[in-house]
């Protein structure tokens, strides 16, 4: 792959492209882990948010509010610099980046899923209860299949925010596309000036994000949830 790119684009350009593309895999891994971890924790928080226990509900609301209000950058600084210094122990950038992005994703996903579940009329719950079903049985058999339809498009849409969010992880020394690209932009090599490297990086990010945005849009139209979706505002 490296040789092919060098052959196609010449010396500095080919090597740079190869390094950028191979660094992109870490961006993808980090996004996937954050999405999976965020989904898992977000799911638990959603459960707590709709549960019958008042304290659990309060805690879940607090969690969602808190981590939706805290900037991702601050989460990264706290987990990458703050906590290690507080504990007097080095933490691997992977762990810090994963932790911050997971927490970030979990709060948003929990909010989206809560909205989706609460958009299902309460009569559905009551009907389930009238049939003698338990909480989890109603949730699994009646509520979730309907809520999935509402939640799918914004969930896919949020994955774009996660990918864009991973670009901040370079601040705590995470070696991803952003980090490698910045190093190339700073290197005094002809053909890797900032006005070449940054648009290239933008294109790579775009290639990752745009299909997901389109998929989210398609799902919105296909599932007929356009405008009905309780969207968590995302940038």
């Amino acid at each position: 792959m490296s040789d092919l790119l060098v052959m196609l684009f010449g010396k500095p350009m080919g090597i740079m492209l190869f390094q950028l593309l191979s660094a992109t895999q870490y961006t993808i891994y980090l996004s996937a882990i954050a999405f999976a971890g965020g989904g898992l924790i977000g799911g638990l928080v959603t459960l707590a948010r709709i549960s019958g226990l008042k304290h659990l509900r309060r805690f879940a609301s607090g969690y969602i509010w808190c981590f939706q209000s805290v900037p991702l950058l601050m989460l990264l600084f706290l987990s990458g610099l703050g906590v290690p210094r507080l504990l007097g122990q080095d933490v691997d950038p992977w762990i810090s980046a994963m932790a911050s992005l997971t927490i970030y994703a979990s709060a948003y996903l929990a909010e989206v899923w809560r909205g989706a579940i609460q958009s299902i009329p309460s009569g559905q719950w009551e009907a389930g209860r009238a049939l003698g079903m338990r909480f989890f049985a109603i949730l699994r058999a009646i509520i979730l299949p309907q809520a999935l339809r509402v939640a799918l498009a914004p969930t896919v849409g949020f994955s774009v925010q996660i990918i864009k969010g991973t670009s901040l992880a370079y601040i705590i020394g995470f070696q991803d596309l952003m980090n490698i690209g910045r190093r190339w932009a700073n290197a005094p090599v002809d053909g890797t000036e900032p006005f070449i490297v940054f648009p290239l990086m933008a294109l790579i990010y775009f290639a990752l994000c745009f299909p997901l945005s389109r998929l989210a849009l398609y799902l919105e139209h296909r599932l007929g949830t356009i405008g009905k979706t309780p969207q968590a505002t995302t940038a």
Partner: peptide, 23 residues
């Protein structure tokens, strides 16, 4: 709109701050 919304702010900022002035 699609391009800006599908790329990270930090990359846009770096381009505007370091790329454009040089160009």
């Amino acid at each position: 709109v699609e391009f800006i919304r599908n790329t990270p702010l930090i990359v846009q900022l770096f381009f505007v701050a370091f790329g454009l002035p040089l160009l």
